[in-house]
């Protein structure tokens, strides 16, 4: 619990500092109208949305890792991200100019992908393995469709938009551009927080979970649905943000152990902090915005290695 308070302070600290990070540099005291607008209407929404997305992706990633008992499971293990990407790309090709519609289609695309996975997995055997296999198939299918769409897109106009979208970015994120998408994210994170006990039990394996009296199938489906809400809403807001959902749960596990009761909030906080830091860099390193997906990999991978190294040191 003490560790969790530490994470909370770290998160709060990083969020506050991020308010003062950006291309436009000014001293906070005294602050004029312009500076206040930049801070509260440009930077704050990005920090809040970044935190939400980081938290939701890592919570969902953790939920998948525990449910499927697979340390390599990330948000795209069931093809949610690919489905969202496909929805967005279709919207970009058909109704170029309506950001709200692109978001909606991305959200629905992710949900459609998981619905397909759940349906297909019943046809091929109904277990963890069949879910993962169906997920692979659906993910590959939607990725291929995205590829086809990229091929068909106009190279001057729509292709760069699709690429920009696929790499993930919080550029231009304001209070009004989130729409209703924080709602499914909050439902998803909240739901997974309440399901910490089943997550613990599921990580023991299907047999043990059944022996402990857990309705494995029902809980698994519920966890998948909540995670899908998280991932598709996040992808709809920021595009494909890679790595965070895979790496933050591992960092959390190395720092607080395997007990989901503290692991779930810890991953959420670490994911949120990590994403805020990455977005700070993405928007302030160069005059143009750098893709967020690239930043998360550049920062996330070494961070994981450092923590693993320290952990190894401690064990020895």
């Amino acid at each position: 619990m003490k560790r969790l308070t530490g994470f909370l302070f770290l998160f709060a600290g990083v969020s506050c500092i991020s308010l003062f990070v950006g291309r436009f540099i000014f001293s906070p005291l005294p602050m004029n109208d312009l500076e206040r607008t930049i801070m509260l209407d440009v930077r704050l929404p990005r920090i809040v949305v970044g935190a939400l997305i980081g938290a939701s992706l890592s919570t969902a990633g953790l939920a998948f890792q525990n449910t499927f008992r697979n340390p390599l499971a990330g948000p795209n293990v069931l093809g949610v991200t690919s489905g969202s990407a496909f929805g967005a790309v279709v919207a970009i090709l058909l109704f170029t100019s309506n950001p709200a519609l692109i978001q909606l289609m991305a959200f629905l695309g992710g949900i459609l992908a998981v619905a397909l996975v759940l349906y297909l997995s019943r046809l091929i055997g109904d277990g963890i393995l069949s879910l993962v296999l169906a997920g692979m198939a659906v993910s590959a299918f939607f990725s291929a469709l995205v590829g086809v769409a990229k091929y068909m897109a106009d190279p001057y106009d729509k292709l760069p938009t699709i690429v920009f979208w696929l790499l993930g970015s919080l550029a231009g994120m304001r209070w009004e551009s989130t729409g209703l998408l924080p709602v499914p994210i909050l439902i998803g994170i909240g739901g997974l927080m309440l399901l910490r006990w089943p997550l613990n039990v599921l990580s023991l394996g299907e047999e043990e979970a059944k022996a402990l009296g857990l309705n494995v199938k029902a809980y698994r489906t519920l966890i998948i649905m909540l995670s899908t809400l998280c991932i598709s809403a996040s992808t709809a807001m920021a595009g494909i943000v890679s790595w965070v959902g895979l790496i933050a749960p591992h960092m959390a596990r190395l720092l607080v152990g395997h007990d989901a009761r503290s692991l779930v909030p810890a991953s959420a906080l670490i994911g949120a902090t990590l994403l805020i830091v990455c977005d700070d860099l993405a928007r302030s390193l160069a005059p143009m915005e750098l893709p967020l997906g690239v930043m998360t990999s550049i920062i996330g991978a070494p961070a994981l290695v450092i923590i693993l190294r320290r952990r190894w040191y401690a064990v020895r």
Partner: peptide, 16 residues
């Protein structure tokens, strides 16, 4: 002086 073709620009950079 930005590289290549289209670059995404943040409003803060425009303020700058």
């Amino acid at each position: 002086s930005l590289p290549g073709g289209w670059n995404v620009i943040n409003v803060e950079q425009v303020v700058e």
